[in-house]
């Protein structure tokens, strides 16, 4: 009796497998990208005009020393860049991931193929990195229109912003993997993402806050992301930049490992 022929096929490498997951998201994005590109330019434009110029006009010239010697528009621009990446990455890691886990069961379908859980995670993180790349490029373009970047070093703001986004995506995917309905997400945005947006150095230096709160803010990835992005855009990179970078990388690495574990626990039974 003839044996069933086993095609000589390797199990997918991490990169090839993750690329398939990324490819799937890009396929969907092909139909919806227009809206998000529009938003990528509109959001910075609106925030810089309103808060940077409008509100900036109320900030007395004396405020400038607190802001590190720049006017409010220049202070705010890079901060909003980093926090926009945080917000988009956070959103992409909540409802869409939950949908693929339980509402539409895409992951169940994908895991029935040779792909594995770590392909899913790396694929989703690559997808979010792609979104961060396009968003922060558009943002940097708008900043340039406002004359904010000081030197070509500003281009480093793009990888810094991507890293900031990913440092939120990984832990939030981990969180999403433990949820059975979406009610926790509202709380996540209300109590974590939005307060960070307000208190992590985007709108005003963290030094304005009481010491205790300042320490809490400094423990969050956004604080370090803002420091790097602002340093790159304004060409005022602080000497502590390796610390900020290391913090973000370690944070991303640890939370990604946790996310993989939790996704596996949820999806592979």
């Amino acid at each position: 009796m003839a044996a069933i022929a086993v095609p000589n096929r390797r199990t997918s490498s991490a990169i090839a497998g993750a690329a398939r997951v990324l490819q799937r998201n890009l396929l969907v994005y092909r139909r919806t990208w227009r809206g998000s590109v529009f938003g990528s330019f509109l959001t910075p434009l609106l925030y810089l005009t309103a808060m940077g110029i409008g509100l900036g006009s109320l900030i007395a010239s004396g405020g400038s020393t607190v802001l590190g010697g720049v006017d409010y528009l220049h202070f705010l621009g890079p901060g909003i860049l980093a926090s926009s990446c945080m917000q988009t990455a956070s959103f992409e890691s909540t409802y869409p991931i939950m949908g693929k886990i339980s509402w539409r069961r895409n992951y169940e379908a994908i895991l029935a193929t040779p792909l594995q859980v770590h392909h899913l995670l790396i694929g989703e993180l690559s997808w979010i990195a792609f979104r961060m790349l396009s968003m922060s490029s558009a943002f940097l373009f708008v900043l340039t229109v406002f004359g904010i970047p000081r030197s070509p070093l500003a281009l480093l703001a793009i990888p810094a912003a991507m890293l900031t986004g990913l440092a939120f995506a990984a832990p939030i995917i981990a969180f999403a993997a433990t949820r059975h309905n979406d009610s926790g997400f509202a709380a996540l945005f209300r109590f974590v993402v939005n307060p960070l947006f307000l208190f992590s150095g985007t709108f005003f230096p963290v030094s304005q806050l009481p010491d205790a709160i300042e320490w809490v803010a400094a423990a969050t990835p956004l604080y370090h992301g803002v420091a790097l992005v602002r340093g790159a855009v304004l060409d005022t990179m602080p000497a502590t930049w390796p610390l900020h970078l290391a913090y973000l990388l370690v944070f991303l690495g640890v939370t990604a490992v946790i996310a993989e574990r939790l996704l596996r626990r949820r999806l592979v039974k």
């Binding site: 509100l55 409010y72 307060p195 307000l198 208190f199 709108f203 304005q208």
Partner: peptide, 10 residues
């Protein structure tokens, strides 16, 4: 955040 944090600058 806005009223007090930013308020100190304004």
């Amino acid at each position: 955040g806005i009223g007090y944090g930013l308020g100190t600058l304004v």
